[in-house]
Computed example of a mutant assay.
Amino acid sequence: MLRLDPHLGTQGAMRDQAAALSTAAPQLAPDEVQGLVKRLYGLDVGVRALAGERDQNCALESADGARYVFKISNPSERVELVDFQIAAIEHIARTSPGQPVPRVVRMLDGRARDTVELAGGIQTTVRMLTYLDGIQIRETPRTVAQRVAMGQGLAALNLALQGFTHPAAAHDLLWNVSAAHRLTVQLDSLVEGPRRVLAQSFMARFVDHVLPRLASLRAQVIHNDYHLYNVLVAPHDPSRITGIIDFGDMLHAPLVGEVATAAAFHMAGCADPFEGPAQFVRAYQSVVPLTEPEQEIVADLMATRHLITALISEWRALRYPENRDYIMRHNPAAWQALSQMADLSRHEARDRLLTPTPTETPP
């Protein structure tokens, strides 16, 4: 498991991550994408832009109706990280072929990726995946059945990734909830006031109560970004998962961080902000039970995910106002969730997350 000293080297790590996040995404024109796809894959396609924060993503459709996703990596993305993502997707396809994840599409010469030159001589990596049908869960009403499907679906994905290793799996990532202490330097960039105080209190909770426990917990390669934008469902059956996408934040980290990160996105939409996360976590545990030490900190890590979302998005939006809407899409919910958890002790939050209400039955 990647472990970082909470006091040494954090400024350097922040600078490295800032450089990666501060590099603008490629902006190839549709005809340039068509030319690349024709040359590398032998396909004539129509091109439609897809949302992305770091990469340029394009939906493609060929004359026979086959659809694909063409990914043009951020120039700062190391090739070994692209290889890591490709290897993970192919591992899942081999070990758990029923998992609703995209498949890697090979080029005419059999390669899974290629390096291309952008304007100004900058090089980047391109690759293609199959297109998964479905709509993002964020576009559908939240239901108990949907949360159960998501919790059990993430557990199944984690089981499929068990035992998978790759040299790049232990890479540094600001979105690693288990290394939130590296963002302590960002607290001073917040405007003086209640939000800064709120963020400082949750950072202290993480450093004091969570960080010392992480090294003893089970860890593996995790998706690390399993939320309402990255899970697809059938349009007429929003509790049936048809796709899990965007493996760009994947890394080797404590498994409980995966559960907490995913659960954090279920706090909105219910009168009781713990109702959705509790349903999700219980569904996950019906497939992969959390250990007692993991249960002790899962609610802390749920709050920590909201903390890093708030800090990273505030920082990114200031630097890239042209992409502000996309960058800040989770920011209001993150601050709201932290406010909702602020008056609860660690143990109260844990119990609210893990204890079924009298009217509920476990999945």
Rank of each mutant, 00 (worst) to 15 (best):
V82Y: 11
V82H: 12
D83L: 10
D83T: 14
F84V: 02
Q85H: 09
I86Y: 10
I86L: 12
I86E: 10
A87F: 11
A87V: 08
A88C: 03
A88Y: 06
I89R: 15
E90F: 07
H91L: 01
H91C: 02
I92P: 03
I92K: 03
A93C: 04
R94C: 14
T95D: 09
S96L: 01
G98V: 01
Q99F: 06
Q99N: 11
R103V: 03
V104N: 13
V104F: 10
V105A: 09
R106W: 04
R106Q: 09
R106D: 10
M107W: 03
M107S: 02
L108C: 12
G110R: 03
A112F: 00
R113N: 08
R113P: 07
R113F: 08
D114V: 15
D114P: 14
T115G: 14
T115N: 13
T115I: 05
V116S: 12
V116L: 14
E117N: 03
E117D: 05
A119S: 13
A119Q: 15
A119H: 15
A119K: 11
G121C: 03
I122N: 07
I122R: 12
T124R: 14
T125V: 05
T125W: 00
V126W: 02
V126T: 01
R127M: 09
R127E: 05
R127Y: 12
M128S: 00
L129W: 07
L129C: 01
T130R: 05
L132W: 08
D133T: 02
D133A: 06
D133P: 14
D133Q: 10
G134W: 06
G134F: 13
G134T: 02
I135M: 13
Q136G: 05
Q136M: 13
Q136D: 07
Q136W: 04
I137N: 07
T140I: 00
T140C: 14
T140V: 08
T140N: 07
P141K: 12
P141Y: 08
P141C: 14
R142V: 12
T143W: 03
T143S: 04
